[in-house]
Write a protein that binds this DNA or RNA. Structure first.
Lengths: 257, 257
DNA sequence: AACCAACGGTTCAAATAATGAACCAACTAT
DNA sequence: ATAGTTGGTTCATTATTTGAACCGTTGGTT
């Protein structure tokens, strides 16, 4: 592993639940030497990718990432276009809509939009880590990902988030085969109890899935009518999003081996 | 210079005007060996900080920066709070409001908000590089920055963006001394002809300026009335923004003149 | 169609930068 | 005091980065 990769991987330990990390803790988390972590973090701080809260205290992500994100949006307006789609989705379904993207071997929620229509809503956190096997979004991605990627994901321990989470690799493979046929992924209580989600993949320039658009409703409200409406809206929005960010949907729907 | 710093500095060559850069061009820009750039970019691509448009083509910023930015916002809601302030500012002044932050020795526009009140507006680009000596925002930052920082900025060649740009270091020092007294920076046509801007600094946890809030209007519309209104709103909003992002204004707080 | 230049990508000996155990000084709770 | 933290530093050893030269392609000119 190169030095740059190691340094950047340090940034991966920050999350909503752990927004600030001290030097020793970061060394422990990464398994690297404290001196190494110190030097790397110093460089990251110099470059604005990290900053220290008070002097000589915990590290957190720095302001430079905001500038880069603004630049990335200027080049590939994924987030701004996605927000348009989320508005449409939450508007037409009356439920929570969200978009997530694949980051290496993880799936991250990126943005969400609530609908004011109902008093109860499925709540989301941006930048939350989603599981591939437990969420509709994750399944949508897996269904169109390269076999090697699927193998890698399913080789890891599969957490049972709820009593209804499917954790048997072969059962999951069967489900994603079905999803590949319809282009629509579904999860009922697989990640959060009482949440019924529908999701469709979004594709990048190489026709690989880069993420997913999803609609999430309380189980009781996801009637066949709503599901049909959401499915139609999701397909349309995802196609739009793929196209407007310079992506391509895979031409022939790949078939299972 | 460490390897990590070099790799991250490569990301600095991307801008709105140059959103995609080829391998050779990047090597030329950075003065580094092509093989070096190739390996570094490969690592950056692996980590999601960069991506290649088509296979074997130009590089651009990657999706990982979006995730980090979302995380940074969760920890320090600078951008989201700033957007609230920008709405207020553009609403109450009827002009363009924008926020910028210091990145190393550069000042970058981060977000902006237009007002629909007038047919002509001062236009902005997010992630644009601003000059310290030519903009109200830059002067606001300089006025409260450490002397060493001011020296470093003024030691560089000072570009005359317009005929009205002040480029004499001693004249600029006099101006920022005055700004320090009032807490309000002003620039008339110093960056763009026919633009009159007002700006106030925003402070970080160490009472150092991290950026600025500004209002920009066409010269003809910036009447004393509007300037007074904008100044009051800017001071209030900047104080709010500083406080809500965990910052502190320096103790000898300049009072209204 | 032959040519040339520029492109992205690759190789390998030589040179340089990263590494990590041990060590500070400061702080906290026992 | 003590013992166990913390962030930060040192320096000989080691492993990684480096860069000139080299591919195979591509795209434009002659």
């Amino acid at each position: 592993m190169g030095t740059v990769t190691k340094a950047l991987s340090l940034l991966g330990y920050f999350s909503q639940t752990r927004p600030e990390i001290g030097l020793s803790e970061l060394a422990r988390l990464s398994g690297m030497n404290k001196a190494t972590v110190y030097r790397m973090m110093s460089e990251l701080v110099d470059q604005g990718f990290a900053e220290q809260t008070r002097q000589g205290k915990s590290y957190r992500l720095g302001p430079e990432v905001l500038r880069l994100a603004a630049l990335r949006e200027a080049a590939v307006p994924l987030l701004s276009v996605a927000r348009e789609m989320l508005m449409q989705l939450s508007e037409s379904t009356g439920e929570t809509a969200h978009v997530s993207i694949v980051q290496g071997t993880r799936l991250n929620a990126l943005a969400h939009q609530y609908s004011p229509r109902h008093g109860t809503r499925v709540m989301m956190e941006d930048a939350e880590v989603l599981s591939f096997h437990g969420t509709a979004s994750g399944l949508a991605v897996l269904a169109f990902a390269e076999p090697a990627f699927v193998d890698a994901v399913l080789a890891r321990p599969l957490v049972a988030h709820t009593a209804k989470t499917e954790t048997r690799p072969d059962a999951i493979r069967a489900r994603i085969a079905a999803i590949r046929a319809t282009g629509l992924a579904e999860s009922v209580g697989g990640f959060e109890a009482d949440v019924h989600s529908l999701a469709v993949p979004v594709f990048g320039p190489d026709a690989q899935p880069i993420g997913a658009l999803a609609v999430a409703a309380p189980v009781a409200r996801m009637t066949p009518d709503l599901a049909a409406c959401a499915a139609e809206a999701l397909r349309r929005c995802a196609a739009d999003l793929t196209r407007r960010t310079g992506g391509f949907a895979p031409e022939p729907l790949p078939e299972e081996a």
